[in-house]
Design a protein around this nucleic acid. Structure first.
Lengths: 99, 99
DNA sequence: TTTGACTTGACAATTTTCGACAAAAGTACA
DNA sequence: TGTACTTTTGTCGAAAATTGTCAAGTCAAA
């Protein structure tokens, strides 16, 4: 999800993993694992990645968070019920109309 | 969410925290924190709790998982977007109709 | 077959979580 | 008030999970 996305973005830009991992100051092996979904990135890394890949920071963060949520509910019975419970408990701030 | 639920169930049954924590073989202070939402229970504890409180194991587990999901997305921008992404990626097994 | 990109697995370092304990704070009541 | 009890809070070390490093591996192209 997040993983496939960053791989696509990187390939579109014709960059090597080595270049990304250098820019992120991380071991190449670790970046490889992140790109394959074996490991998760940390938030700051996601943010830097968005810059490096000219991607929307918000979008990447959403995918990254979606992965985390999926890790929790993905295998559970009634996963959708759980998501609904959470959705109801969230108070999404309405954009107040300008006066 | 999970926390308030177990507190209500316990109070309805007129039990003391001490009694629950003894049955769960856990420190009283820890159970207190769980009931207040300061700490999270572990899965086996949730299951035992459902028994002790005569509650539906499935329901309690859902609330417990919902808390975990909320911890991830609750404070995030576009939390609902994230939940939608996850919902779409979940393949909920359809109950196949008996022939 | 050498080179460079990528992948893997095992281990080390770091961070987070869990549980134990002590002590404080609140409650009820003689 | 003073005692007995329940609940709450803070802190600490142990245990577990996460993140990072290193060495060796595969694979494809030159």
């Amino acid at each position: 999800m997040f993983a496939e996305k960053i791989r696509q973005l990187r390939e579109n830009k014709q960059l090597l993993q080595r270049q990304i991992s250098a820019a992120l100051e991380m071991d190449n092996a670790l970046y490889c694992k992140i790109e394959r979904g074996d490991r998760t990135a940390r938030r700051e890394q996601v943010i830097k990645l968005a810059e490096l890949l000219d991607a929307s920071q918000e979008e990447l963060l959403k995918l990254w968070l979606a992965d985390k949520v999926y890790d929790i509910v993905g295998e559970e019975d009634g996963a959708n019920d759980i998501l609904n419970i959470v959705a109801e408990s969230i108070v999404e701030y309405q954009k107040s109309k300008p006066i």
